[in-house]
Amino acid sequence: MSGYTRRDFLKFGAYFGAVMGLGGAAAPTLAAALQRLTESRPPVLWLHGLACSGCTVSLLNSENPGPLELLTQHIHLNFHATLSTATGSVAIDVLEKTIAAGDYVLVVEGSIPATMPKACRVNHEPIGELVLRATRQAKQVPGADGSLQPLVVATGACAAFGGVPAAENNPTGATSVGDYLTQRGQAARVVNLPGCPVHPDWIVGTLAHVLGFGLPELDDAGRPTMFYGKTIHDQCPRFSDYESERFAEHFGDDGCLFKLGCVGPEVYADCTVRNWNGGASDCIQAGAPCIGCASQDFAREAQFPFYRMNPAFPKILAKKAEG
């Protein structure tokens, strides 16, 4: 994490000054130089497609860094429609200056209405065109094939995999950011952060990693393995109930939540060990099944099971019985 405050830099400056025998007078200059190291890091540009702003609100739920520390000490957020004081023409000016200067970390929240461009516009421009323009100018990182490609952080279920707007009946042709860019022939290194919404640690941790240490390790679906490496089921606080086949039959019951629709075995995310809202709880702790909001299949087909037995359940149990 780039967790240095100006005060830290003054302190480091004094420390390095002393080490190098420069005395106190050189400290402010050194402090300024060190500080510039962090501030010359690329700014962040955050765009909203077919979104509910849930990922934005989740970002604001970040703790250590809290939201203001995040925005002022860790990242330089050039533009964000919900958080920018700039509005109207001032906001457009900020947006266009940012894109013209390029080399920013692009974050997209929400999916793209590929077949109905008017279903999401900013200043008359379809969001797909804006995202495409912004992608071309974004900071470049090595792609899967080693060539340099613009980096796009697709935050939340909608941007990563399409989400609810792309669910069956999808009237706008809503599609994930990665698929949209592919359709438009735009190469990009897309980091997918599924979850509905994204967990604050997933987005803040990814940005911190990108800014401080480069691209994190990603799986085949573009997800950082540091957050999406294991299934919910394998990290479930009710795993022992599953093992001893104690199943909840009704809401409020103790026991494994399979019969109430838990899809934990098919979902890669660390909710149950990380917990949500500063460690307050998570779905399973609250007696609710994992509804698979971080899954590629989340809500996609009308059959996707919410609160009713996962069709995979009998198969999983049979496999378990075989040992």
């Binding site: 509910c52 849930g54 609100v57 989740s58 739920n61 509905c196 919404p197 909710c271 949500w276 809202n277 307050a280 709880s281 998570d282 779905c283 399973i284 702790q285 609250a286 007696g287 609710a288 099944p289 509804i291 909001c293």
Partner: peptide, 13 residues
């Protein structure tokens, strides 16, 4: 909200 309903935004409980 999360204490009672698991997580927020988008509560499962």
């Amino acid at each position: 909200t999360a204490l009672i309903a698991g997580k927020q935004p988008h509560t499962p409980a």
